[in-house]
Computed example of a mutant assay.
Amino acid sequence: MEAENYTAVPFFIIKGISDNPKFQAPIFILVLLIYLFAVGGNIGILFLVGMDSKLHNPMYFFLGNLSVLDISSITVTLHKTLAIFLTGNKTLSFPGCITQVYFFMALECTELLILAAMSLDRYAAICNPLHYPMIMNPRTCAFLASVCWVLGFIEVIPHAVITNNLSCYTSNEINHFFCDVLPLMKISCSDTSLLKLWIVTEGVFVSGVVPLVTTLVPYIFIIRAILKVRSTSGRQKAFYTCSSHVTLVIVLYLTLYCLYLTPSSENTLDSHKLFSLFNTAAVPILNPLIYSLKNKDVKSAVKRQLHYLYCKMIYPLTLNFKKCEKHIES
């Protein structure tokens, strides 16, 4: 009978990143800058991939998908945090909370699958370079991306359904800056054994291990192929083309490990909040940052677009603009 007092939870109160009034303004400025930098950087990647014809290949097609995922993920998680700072309203409806849980998990799963697809693309490019254009043709790339998006949003539906059925809560205050499964489980007085079992079986092994294996196995063959290359410059070039992707994979999986696979005694709510902030804020920044600093094609594309902009501003006449374009291409 006591549990019945907690069955009706019309809304939750998001505690946020910090309760200390002294930290509110600095945290708001920091979060806003992180959000603007992440969104702006990923929009820049999308612009380059869309506008520069030399980036119209499978690698940058999947990179564009990653940018869309990063923009969506950071918006889903940080929009409420920014709204709290601006309006002071910390409440979030129960359906809104479950919706946030669903989209956060769906976007995370989709990103892992896209990274696996990028690994297959690198395998085809390095191990089968002569047949690469036929293997990774636009239709194949669109099919792989569609499968990743559909599977990512389908496989987390049970998570959201089970979480939605946690009707009993000891409190409606969530010690987090957005609705996530673990903080909800902490304040739930319902039986969470089914949700824990589903997280371990489907969440860890299906959503985590399968994409990880799919990502790592192609690199076994990639490394073998690279080691067979006789020239040092050839090996360095092959490793260089994979370094950005490998860096993103390592950072993302390490962050997810710290979030969901560390022992419960060590994975306190505060540490979970810290790793969640890094996962939702820093990872979307790393995508454009890594590919901008480490990728020669992206650097060249940025220079070309800046030069094209310069031509349009300085040489408005068609004849002069075409001459300027030819000069850039040369």
Rank of each mutant, 00 (worst) to 15 (best):
I126T: 08
H159N: 10
T170S: 01
Y102L: 04
R235K: 11
S193Y: 05
N128R: 09
A145H: 03
R224M: 13
S67M: 03
A3Y: 01
N65A: 04
I98Q: 06
V210L: 14
S330F: 10
A225Q: 15
S244P: 00
E266Y: 14
I13H: 14
T247K: 01
L48R: 12
I29G: 00
F28D: 11
E266F: 09
R230H: 12
Y315K: 14
L252S: 12
S119P: 12
S18W: 00
K54P: 03
K80C: 09
T215K: 14
N65L: 08
L216P: 02
V298P: 13
F103C: 08
C127Q: 03
L309C: 15
F221C: 07
G64W: 07
A160W: 01
V101M: 06
H327L: 13
F205P: 01
Y240S: 15
L309R: 15
I98E: 00
I74S: 11
A116W: 12
F275Y: 11
A83R: 12
F61D: 03
S231G: 03
L319C: 14
F61W: 07
S167A: 00
P183S: 00
L48W: 07
L212W: 13
M105Y: 05
G16Y: 00
V31I: 15
Y169R: 10
Y260N: 00
R139A: 07
V217P: 06
L197T: 14
L319D: 10
Y253S: 10
Y315A: 12
L194P: 06
L92M: 14
P316V: 06
I154G: 02
Y310N: 15
F143A: 08
I187K: 06
G16E: 08
S330N: 04
K323V: 13
P158D: 00
L248T: 04
L319Y: 04
D270N: 13
R304T: 14
T280H: 13
L306M: 10
A145Q: 06
G41Q: 15
S18A: 05
S72T: 06
Y260F: 02
R235D: 10
G96C: 05
P284Y: 09
F47R: 12
I328V: 03
E111I: 02
L212I: 01
C311A: 15
V204H: 09
P133E: 09
L107N: 02
M118Q: 08
F85C: 06
I29Y: 14
R122S: 09
H176I: 04
I71H: 02
D180T: 00
N267V: 07
C242I: 04
L195I: 12
P316Q: 09
F104C: 03
